[in-house]
């Protein structure tokens, strides 16, 4: 039989299905493919429509009946999108904040995850319960009061909130690291202790290097969180210091103050492509991240 084996689960398949069932299976597969392709069009369509819109002239965009393809792809929309607003500056802000946060939060979450996985202290269980419940807390709930507080102590329109959020570790990433560290055999740690190694060095020199895949997952996830975040920069930063997400959503205007659709589409393409590229090359890291959010408890 030509059944493709799932390499992840080499289950024993003793009785191969009777040959009589084969035609039905083929018809089934064709039907499934047709359904999958229709769905794929629905899911990928918005990307295609965005890029097509970015390549159209204004007249083509509003033409009736609607044109699917632009007659002459307007690559100039992209260069104009880069110069119309100070794209480079906003890009710099986005990159800087995303990188800063991702580095800090990955390191702090790894340390906290190590603590919960390998060390013991009074109150560890309740603390871990609190950590798990904060994963459920909507970010917006604390964000607005944080904004009010930070406005009073002058932290608004600085990048300090991102430093603080980074240092504070993310419960979600802590959980990711904890699961990984908890699965490492205790012998490794014991040997280091016998050699007179403290927990600081055990963490930095043994556990951290071992957790490379989790470090990558954590860095990529947290980077894309800040890259994609809208509400925090919209609240905390003024238009000169804000990130690309806010700039793209609001700053492309024609002289009448209406949104400049073509340029906005071009800018949105430039904004989303890096995320998609990172995702395509590092899909398994993202999936690892998603999975740990779904099977916690």
């Amino acid at each position: 039989m030509t059944i493709v084996r799932d390499p992840a689960r080499p289950a024993i398949k003793p009785a191969s299905p009777a040959p009589a069932r084969r035609p039905r299976r083929t018809a089934d597969a064709v039907g499934t493919y047709l359904l999958l392709m229709a769905l794929a069009v629905l899911f990928a369509g918005p990307f295609a429509w965005l890029v097509l819109a970015a390549l159209k002239t204004k007249t083509e965009w509003v033409a009736i009946p609607a044109k699917i393809l632009p007659e002459n792809p307007q690559w100039g929309n992209f260069t104009q999108a880069l110069t119309e607003i100070n794209f480079a500056a906003y890009l710099g802000n986005s990159l800087f904040l995303s990188f800063l946060y991702a580095v800090l939060v990955t390191f702090s979450s790894a340390a906290v995850g190590f603590g919960f996985a390998r060390l013991r202290g009074r109150g560890k269980r309740p603390l871990f319960m609190v950590l798990l419940s904060t994963m459920m807390l909507p970010q917006i709930l604390t964000l607005i009061p944080t904004y009010v507080l930070f406005a009073r102590i002058g932290l608004v329109n600085t990048y300090w909130p991102w430093v603080l959020w980074g240092l504070a570790a993310s419960p979600y990433l802590v959980f990711l690291f904890r699961q990984f560290f908890a699965a490492i055999p205790a012998e490794l740690e014991d040997a280091a202790i016998i050699d007179g190694c403290g927990y600081g060095r055990i963490f930095l020199q043994i556990f951290l290097p071992l957790s490379r895949p989790v470090l990558v997952t954590s860095f990529l996830l947290s980077f894309t969180w800040i890259w994609g975040d809208y509400i925090a920069p919209a609240l905390f930063l003024d238009p000169d210091h804000t990130t690309l997400s806010v700039a793209i959503s609001a700053f492309y205007r024609d002289p009448h103050g209406n949104p400049d659709t073509m340029l906005q589409a071009a800018a949105a393409t430039l904004y989303v492509v890096p995320v998609l590229v990172i995702f395509l090359f590092a899909q398994r890291y993202f999936i690892r991240g998603v999975l740990s959010s779904g099977v916690k408890g």
């Binding site: 899911f43 918005p46 965005l50 509003v62 994609g228 997400s245 949105a268 995702f279 899909q283």
Partner: peptide, 26 residues
């Protein structure tokens, strides 16, 4: 991959994409 991709798109880009689709005239 195709089905998973939209869930990593930043919300701002998502809104722009869907406004282009839902646009009344174009």
């Amino acid at each position: 991959t195709i089905f998973f991709l939209p869930s990593v798109v930043p919300v701002v880009a998502m809104a722009i994409m869907w406004k282009l689709i839902f646009n009344r005239d174009a």
